[in-house]
Design a binder for these strands. Structure first.
Lengths: 208, 208
DNA sequence: ACCTGAACACCGTTCAAGT
DNA sequence: ACCTGAACACCGTTCAAGT
């Protein structure tokens, strides 16, 4: 139960600081995070964090770095190259949604393009099996990556902002003929369905 | 040249405050914005901003509201429903990229789903001309909107983060067979191309 | 090598007081 | 109705000082 604190006398390590920061962010969100709260949680003076991991920027960079490493380990399966591409895309998306707050930090710091990197090579390998190479393959790699990452970025902000998401019914004339549509738009967006629709549309040309 | 300031003796209006805030954010970015700087720019004490427009949250909400209104006025053209859908999507995207900083604020405050609203109805009208209605139409509306908005959100962070975007060549074995691909991935992502590829892939089923 | 407190230059916000 | 200064509770960061 009890967390490691330097009150025990033991010096704090950089890893402990990063772990605690990650947990804090995961539990309370990014906006509640501050160096001073982290220090308090660690039972340490703020300034010793600076000694071990540097300032706020360096700390966040290190956390994003950890996310990048996790993406390198993603599993994928499937019979065909297209299946395997879809499989990688899905597991990358799952990881990003699971690490929502880290993704938000990466995005906030304009590091989202770096999230492409750990998976580029594997996508490229699958594409080359389909005979797709060169700049065409590069475009497709980007198309898939943008779809995965941006959909995760959007979903996050949508879920958090669900309170404001109430459909203003006055926008739709009561006489709007397609009431089934109005009703469907009233309920919250199903981002999984949107993602899957997009993914198969993007990969459809590869099956021809 | 000279900006309106309350030093002149005239009271400041809420509109003046919002305009100045928008300009400040547009020029220096969101991260450089603060209530105190805004007050300074207006030649007014910080606290009078609170009297006119409320705090930081209210102010940002009002700015986002302005963006929503602009989206209601977007023009579109084209011969077929599919062409018009694509046209609306492109002009919405253009507006969002032009108002990058406002988009970032909207995203940060989890208001991105609200950006769907001003255009939903027009997309729905085009879809119904194609005989697409009900929950199927609702899904397609969301698919298009997510594509437009998320691609703008991504492009923004990518452009700003271009400094970190350097491809790490060590990731690619020098012997990687497809050197044209490696080279293509080394150059920065062409987000317009990625957007257009995605858009036509998403709309392709509608032409069948 | 590791930790500390004091200090600096910033924030957003509230509130009582002015005219 | 409009504006103000003072004050509060926060920030991130630097630095000289301790052990």
């Amino acid at each position: 139960m009890s967390q490691p604190r330097s009150k025990s006398g033991e010096p704090v390590t950089a890893d402990q600081i990063l772990e605690t920061a990650a947990r804090l962010i995961d539990v309370d969100g990014v906006e509640a995070f501050s160096m001073r709260r982290l220090a308090e949680q660690l039972g340490v003076a703020v300034t010793s964090i600076y000694w071990h991991v540097g300032g706020r920027d360096k700390l966040f960079d290190s956390l994003v770095e950890g996310l990048l490493e996790q993406m390198a380990d993603l599993r994928s399966d499937g019979e065909t190259p297209v299946d395997r591409i879809a499989s990688i895309a899905r597991s990358q998306r799952r990881l990003l949604i699971q690490k929502q707050n880290l993704l938000a930090i990466a995005h906030e710091r304009d590091r989202t393009p770096q999230l492409f990197l750990p998976i580029q090579q594997r996508l490229a390998a699958e594409l080359s099996e389909l005979g797709i190479t060169g700049s065409e393959a590069a475009l497709l790699v980007r198309v898939v990556e943008v779809h995965v990452i941006s959909s995760a970025v959007m979903q996050f902000s949508a879920v958090r902002g669900a309170k404001h998401d109430e459909e203003d019914p006055s926008l739709w004339a009561d006489a709007w003929p397609d009431q089934a549509l109005v009703e469907a738009l009233q309920s919250p967006t199903d981002y999984d369905a949107v993602f899957e629709y997009g993914l198969s549309a993007l990969l459809a040309p590869l099956n021809g």
